[in-house]
């Protein structure tokens, strides 16, 4: 199978920080807002380079969403940044009214998503954010797989006209995609071609999916791996083309079983190409305190669990 090299673990939020600075250099309309999380969101470099375009909002996320919408109406391209829970669940109505329904060109930079936030525990570990954002009409939902792709997706989000939800995380994860590959919103990437099973993943679980494919290869199972970085709009064509070939699908995501990538993918197959699907996700559970790797294992999100789901779904063909 195609080999991917981890060029050194890096946190995806730092990819956002680098992408934000690049987007800011390319377009003077780009502004950044945070609710007392400049450092956590890696906005320091942008704030240092463009102090007049960096807006500190204090711990007041609801107002930050509205202020960003107002800035967007005047022609700015605002990125609002906070922890995933605090730019989705905490301000769901503000995002719905001011950004989505108000059709304002606001980019929601959502860091520390999922259980791999780690030690802070369940109050800060949202596993429901993709579901919330997917449900909003016209909202673009992106969960890139590594540092490089987060950087490139940030640049793409700045160029795209309309609301974007950009999800990334806190821990360092393998960095394996090209440094300067253009991110195309709505286009999935076939990371490895296979014929026996399709593994669809988003976020850093794409790396786990590739590891799972290597485990399966040793068993004589040839897995196709799809990086579905854009969850909405979903690249249905790539999904269907793959499933016509493999006739079995696994979907892996660091998210609750409800409303995430898994249900989005299953919806496509239920409608267009009935296909057995197995799900690797956070089930219907809250997170808890622990190291990211301990939590990944405990919640069944690592390569071993993806491989097991692949073996199972193949028996259902």
């Amino acid at each position: 199978m195609k080999k991917y090299i981890d060029t050194g673990k890096k946190d995806t939020r730092s990819g956002f920080g680098v992408g934000l600075l690049e987007a800011g250099k390319a377009d003077a309309r780009v502004v950044a807002l945070t609710a007392d999380l400049k450092g956590s969101l890696k906005m320091d470099a942008f704030a240092a380079e463009f102090p007049e375009r960096f807006i500190q909002c204090g711990i007041a996320e609801a107002n930050m969403v509205g202020a960003a919408a107002g800035l967007a109406i005047t022609g700015k391209v605002p990125f609002i940044g906070s922890f995933a829970e605090f730019v989705t669940g905490r301000v769901y109505d503000q995002v719905r009214q001011e950004v989505a329904y108000g059709k304002t060109n606001v980019k929601i930079a959502s860091s520390h998503a999922g259980i791999t936030l780690g030690e802070d525990g369940a109050t800060h570990q949202t596993m429901e954010d993709i579901a919330l954002m997917r449900a909003l009409p016209e909202m673009v939902v992106i969960n890139p797989c590594d540092f490089n792709q987060t950087k490139n997706a940030t640049i793409a989000a700045a160029k795209y006209v309309g609301p974007v939800y950009l999800r990334f995380g806190r821990p360092s994860v393998p960095n394996f995609t090209p440094e300067n590959e253009e991110f195309v919103i709505g286009k999935a990437q076939v990371m490895n071609e296979g014929k026996d099973v399709t593994i669809v993943a988003c976020g850093h679980l794409v790396w786990e999916a590739l590891q799972a494919a290597e485990i399966l290869e040793a068993e004589g199972i040839c897995a196709e791996v799809i990086n579905m970085a854009t969850i909405k709009p979903l690249d249905e064509e790539t999904l269907l083309t793959s499933a016509v070939k493999t006739k079995a699908v696994v979907v892996a995501e660091e998210h609750n079983m409800a409303g995430g990538l898994g249900e989005a993918v299953a919806g496509v197959f239920a409608r267009a190409l009935p296909t057995p699907v197995e799900f690797v996700n956070g089930k219907d559970l809250f997170g808890q305190t622990g190291t990211p790797s301990a939590l990944m294992e405990a919640y069944g999100l690592d390569a071993q669990h993806i491989a097991a789901a692949a073996r199972k779904v193949i028996t259902r063909k």
Binding site: G66, A69, L71, E98, G102
Partner: peptide, 20 residues
Amino acid sequence: FQASGSLGQGLSAACGLALG
């Protein structure tokens, strides 16, 4: 200029307009 009706939100949008 902006959708409104879910109360308490318009003043924030107005702040964004003023800052812009």
